[in-house]
Design a protein around this nucleic acid. Sequence first.
DNA 1: GTCTATAATTTGATAGAC
DNA 2: GTCTATCAAATTATAGAC
Lengths: 172, 172
Amino acid sequence: MTAPTRERILEAAERHVRAGGYNGFSFRDLATEIGIKSASVHYHFPSKETLVAELAARYRERFLVGLPAPSPAQPALPALRAAFRAALHRDGLMCLCGALANQTEVLPPPVATEARAFFEALLVWLDAGLTGSDVIRRQTALASLAQLEGAMLLARTLDDPRVFDDATAELA
Amino acid sequence: MTAPTRERILEAAERHVRAGGYNGFSFRDLATEIGIKSASVHYHFPSKETLVAELAARYRERFLVGLPAPSPAQPALPALRAAFRAALHRDGLMCLCGALANQTEVLPPPVATEARAFFEALLVWLDAGLTGSDVIRRQTALASLAQLEGAMLLARTLDDPRVFDDATAELA
DNA sequence: GTCTATAATTTGATAGAC
DNA sequence: GTCTATCAAATTATAGAC
């Protein structure tokens, strides 16, 4: 009942990126953790760049699938807050794309592109679920997304998940 | 009129950490940039851990000195927003402690401690400048700090400094 | 204070056997 | 698919000459 190796690699890599960013782990770390050799990791993913780019794309897709369709019955901000909260509370780690976004300058371009796409997708989703003028919707979307990512960051540094709840109470 | 070597090392290191976090640069990078050898960097700072911990402490002290004393005439939130905005616009980089906070798990403990102290100090400063009940002041302080750090992160990933202004317009 | 030289380890990656 | 073996480069750090 163990997941296929490729999947276990992605899971281990996700934990590591969310904990320490792109440069915070090695192929050997992943290999040791799942009980294989680093050469076997390279069999599944030719390079680190490839692995993390796929990881970020997968994270974005899954995150978006988990969001409800925008509707008056399901206000956008509480729904997005719940999604971020779940990501933090499930394993106490940063948002994967937030962890990457923080180091844009040292990321391989394909990885930076994927991380950026996560935020652009969320801004589009938010815009569709908000009301008001173009300017107001844009500012609200950016402000909310900033607050959610920042709240995860604070909760991580201060090592207290309740910090997230307090920092985003107004969005609930 | 060139700054002393020790100071130039700190400046180069600050740029690198703010761009790519703790693992995003090496002593050789710093050395090459300022025109010396990496062994000379070790003369000024025995280890990378020492260098970055001092860097974070210095960043915190300077940041706090740049903030006005809390007073009714100088509302806290716009003042803090201006300070973060200046840090971003001066060189288009992340907050140093935000860049570190994002990788708490892989930081040497002394560095993680310094990064954390930055946020604790700002929360104390904010609390003194806000009004309302204990709970309200705490939530407002956390929410504002989260929004400011997140806005810097978004501005970096989306590569557009105006994103910060839009994401924090309500704090002005 | 800065250099050359170098040690010890880690890293991303490849070749080829099984 | 996974392994052993290995590589070239990079990284943190030290010793000792100048």
